[in-house]
């Protein structure tokens, strides 16, 4: 039996499984869009329906933008995530180059420490870092949001693995041509590692754009708030939670990520599979 239609049957099974998985993943997302499009009365009605009877997305968006300075929060998000990513690259690339291509005493130990660092969750170091920032008086500033994340052990590890695949001869040729060691990092390794840097960039940006924990701890001032904090603000309103505008705001803050992903999809997958250079 399975001999007659082996391919269609298996393909159907596979697709059913995948579609079920995808639907489960997408459900909250779709529910968010649905809620964002409903007027307050429908949200609290006892019947569950996906398509709103009255389409209220625009109203909710208007209210969201009116209640909070969403643009400012989006800008904060951009400033913070871009700064973090740029600084992470500036630290991770030279470090990864040293770990991958230079020979020095203690290299393996250092690399083991990097691997160990990946295991430590940020929450574990949150309090010491918080106290440190307090001591140097940086709490409640952009610096407090950016500085703790400039050294990404994951970034160092990822880039080091990628640099390992770059042939040694290329590094030696650069040395013969008179490029300095730092020059090699930026002029030879970085262009070769663009897919890996892109992949890392996506991880980094997504993680810090969506980070709720750390900004919540170090921020007080409203004007510094990052997008997730801003959304949470809707919930704490004394007037009761207004879910429609809340969901509309949530849509707004994840929109940049979704759009960026759609544009960089190819690169993203390239980077994840780390095909490397030939």
């Amino acid at each position: 039996m399975s001999n007659a239609h082996p391919v269609p049957f298996r393909a159907i099974l596979r697709h059913v499984l995948l579609i079920t998985g995808a639907a489960l993943m997408l459900a909250p997302f779709i529910w968010m869009i649905s809620t964002a499009s409903k007027p307050q009365t429908e949200i609290f009605s006892s019947e569950l329906h996906l398509i709103p009877h009255r389409f209220a997305l625009m109203e909710n968006l208007r209210e969201a933008f009116a209640k909070a300075n969403l643009l400012r929060f989006l800008l904060n998000g951009v400033i913070v995530t871009v700064s973090i990513f740029v600084l992470q690259v500036m630290v991770a690339l030279p470090a990864a180059y040293a770990l991958a291509k230079l020979r020095f005493l203690g290299r393996e130990t250092l690399f083991a420490l990097v691997l160990f660092g990946i295991l430590i969750p940020p929450q574990a170091t949150a309090i010491p870092v918080f106290l440190l920032l307090h001591k140097i008086g940086l709490l409640d500033s952009y610096a407090a949001l950016v500085l703790p994340f400039t050294i990404s052990v994951f970034g160092i590890f990822l880039m080091r693995q990628f640099f390992k695949t770059v042939p040694d001869d290329l590094v030696d040729a650069a040395r013969m041509d008179g490029i300095s060691e730092f020059g090699i990092v930026w002029r030879v390794m970085l262009p070769a590692a663009i897919p890996a840097v892109t992949a890392f960039g996506i991880f980094s940006v997504v993680a810090h754009w969506n980070d709720y924990f750390w900004p919540l701890i170090v921020l007080n001032s409203e004007h510094l708030r990052t997008p997730p904090l801003a959304v949470a603000h809707f919930r704490n309103n004394e007037a009761g939670t207004s879910y429609g505008p809340l969901m509309a705001a949530a849509m707004v803050i994840i929109a940049p990520l979704v759009i960026a992903f759609l544009f960089a999809q190819r690169r993203f997958i390239e980077g994840i599979t780390l095909t490397g250079i030939k």
């Binding site: 030696d172 650069a174 013969m176």
Partner: peptide, 15 residues
């Protein structure tokens, strides 16, 4: 001031 030609040619792939 020596020049070297490598077995793998070692050309910069992005240039």
């Amino acid at each position: 001031n020596l020049a070297m030609v490598f077995q793998s040619y070692a050309l910069y792939p992005h240039l």
